[in-house]
Design a protein around this nucleic acid. Structure first.
Lengths: 152, 152
DNA sequence: TAATTGGGTACCATTTTAGTCCTGTATAAA
DNA sequence: TTTATACAGGACTAAAATGGTACCCAATTA
């Protein structure tokens, strides 16, 4: 299904929540309340986002989390990578060494191109887009079609 | 990682193998040999592809598998869906009923737009592309960029 | 009728994921 | 300096998904 993990979903929701009030410091408990998810789980997610450098944290009274940089400079790919690791479609596309089956595979190159296209797409969607409640109007039909046609 | 399952990877490899010899009937054992994967696993994958309507099978002596339609009319999205179910990024984007958290989610709409863009991309890549050993040249930089800009 | 080849399904082992909890540490206010 | 607050890090468990195998049945053809 090419599905995101549930934690990644949480991460996006939480990041969006923070992005809507960028000047404030957000405690984990407050965020959990705001998005109606269990505190420990939200907390775990936040820690991962800090480790990935998307959030900065402040301990102690009045502490909490803030964006590490403007929402327009944080991409969907960043958020996904923070929770799930590098965005890649196949195992061989992230392994260092060659895949044992490279000789008989025959699709590796083109899969990687598709993977790259998806990554580029995800890098072009920012947290600012996601946090905005007004829809992004994606004119997917035409530009995307042109990608496949390029090979024909 | 937005990664495909390993079986999906196998499916793509096997489909590409069949697509390169579209007129022949391919027995599961022969395909397993050709792609250097265990027979039972390849067999399982083939059954899923038949059930999804991407391959047709013939039992008995000289039986085997063939493409159900030309490789140019089978998409990457078809293959992924055959193994993993419908292509969707989030759980809520495939569930019938509303998500309980819809009220506090705040990113649902735009995630779905991203999901749609990816699906459209995957639908634009055909098995003919994947089976071709010459690379598809994807000019991803420009057209994809234009998608995000459309919201700005 | 016998050999071949796919269909369907059940099953198990392993890995991944989700979720919780506990202990430690930094901060700020009293 | 003490104390309450809030994050850091990691261990741990339970549940689910995944990968892989095996078995028996059905269809086809020689």
């Amino acid at each position: 299904m090419l599905k995101l993990s549930r934690l990644t979903d949480y991460a996006a929701v939480v990041m969006a929540q923070i992005a809507r009030h960028p000047q404030a410091s957000h405690a984990a408990a407050d965020l959990a309340e705001a998005v109606q998810l269990p505190h420990p789980t939200v907390s775990k997610t936040l820690k991962m986002l800090v480790k990935a450098g998307l959030l900065v944290s402040q301990r102690g009274v009045q502490g909490g989390y803030r964006l590490a940089r403007p929402a327009s400079h944080i991409t969907a790919a960043d958020i996904i990578a923070a929770i799930e690791g590098p965005v890649a479609m196949t195992e061989c596309s992230q392994a260092e060494g060659e895949c044992d089956l490279a000789a008989t595979c025959g699709v590796a190159d083109n899969w990687q191109r598709v993977s790259l296209a998806i990554r580029t797409l995800l890098e072009s969607v920012t947290l600012a887009h996601l946090a905005d409640t007004t829809p992004i109007k994606l004119p997917v039909q035409l530009p995307i079609q042109s990608i496949s046609l390029a090979s024909a």
